[in-house]
């Protein structure tokens, strides 16, 4: 059974078509990357999977069921626009979110995740006392407690410092090892390449491509050589077999023709 099955889904807001006849299948246990520029339809697709928005047409099934029939405890969702009740204590807030989703007390799990993300000393502090990075880690914990079967992360690394980003990345990979299906959106191809098994690219609401990373690389990949040349861009242009040259400041990138 697939984790998510999206069939011919369209969603419009007034005159704007945010998602246009989208079909996509996300297998269980995978890390699936949603890639696309701002406004391309990534967040809208995620919100429809989570049931915040309803599709105008088409259907979305999660673990084989219509989305409305899936219990809230099975899905964890980290929205792109993050916010927490600033006056609440961290531990109390996380227990509130956890209990809201699962219907049971989650004190132990919250403590364990606070320890794992190095926030255990902050449990009794108010959210307003946290730094931005710590707030994002707290929000991540709120998303994964109790452990969901499907984790949806909208731009999980945006605004995070490299250390915090690495901590979240490791946590995502650990959840995946335990069988959680992860969907994450990102602008960063590097993140997608290092973390995702499969990639779905969307542009102006329409699917551009999707598939496993390996299959996409085989289909669309090109070899790139980075060189520093004393003569700069002009020295590289005109060399035989060079198909494309791009000036990137410290180095010039150029793509070669296949077989050269």
């Amino acid at each position: 059974m697939d984790a998510v099955q999206i069939s011919n889904v369209t969603k419009t807001f007034g005159a704007v078509t945010a998602v246009d006849d989208l079909s996509l299948t996300i297998p269980q246990g995978s890390v699936y990357g949603f890639i696309g520029p701002n406004g391309s339809g990534k967040s809208t697709t995620m919100r429809m999977i989570v049931n915040i928005f309803y599709p105008d047409s088409g259907s979305i099934k999660v673990f084989g069921q219509e989305r409305r029939g899936v219990g809230a405890e099975q899905i964890g969702y980290l929205p792109e626009e993050r916010g927490l009740y600033r006056q609440m204590e961290v531990q109390t807030l996380l227990e509130f979110y956890g209990e809201l989703r699962s219907g049971r007390k989650v004190t132990a799990e919250v403590k364990e995740w606070l320890r794992r993300l190095d926030l255990e000393k902050w449990g009794s502090k108010k959210v307003e006392a946290l730094s931005k990075g710590m707030s994002q880690k707290v929000q991540f914990i709120a998303t994964v407690v109790p452990e969901p079967k499907l984790l949806i992360l909208d731009e999980p690394f945006s605004g995070l410092d490299p250390v915090s980003a690495e901590t979240i990345r490791e946590a995502v990979l650990e959840l995946r090892r335990r069988g959680t299906t992860v969907i994450l959106s990102t602008h960063d191809m590097g993140v997608a390449a290092s973390l995702c098994d499969s990639i779905f690219m969307i542009f102006k609401g329409r699917k551009v491509l999707d598939g496993t990373l390996a299959s996409i690389q085989a289909r669309y990949g090109s070899d790139t050589i980075r060189v520093s040349v004393a003569g700069g861009l002009a020295a590289v242009q005109g060399i035989g077999g060079v198909e494309q040259v791009r000036d990137q400041g410290q180095f010039q990138g150029f793509a070669r023709r296949a077989g050269v």
Partner: peptide, 15 residues
């Protein structure tokens, strides 16, 4: 105020 602090989207994933 809560809307401005963006606390609702996460809640709406559950309720």
């Amino acid at each position: 105020e809560d809307k401005m602090q963006r606390v609702f989207e996460m809640l709406l994933a559950t309720t």
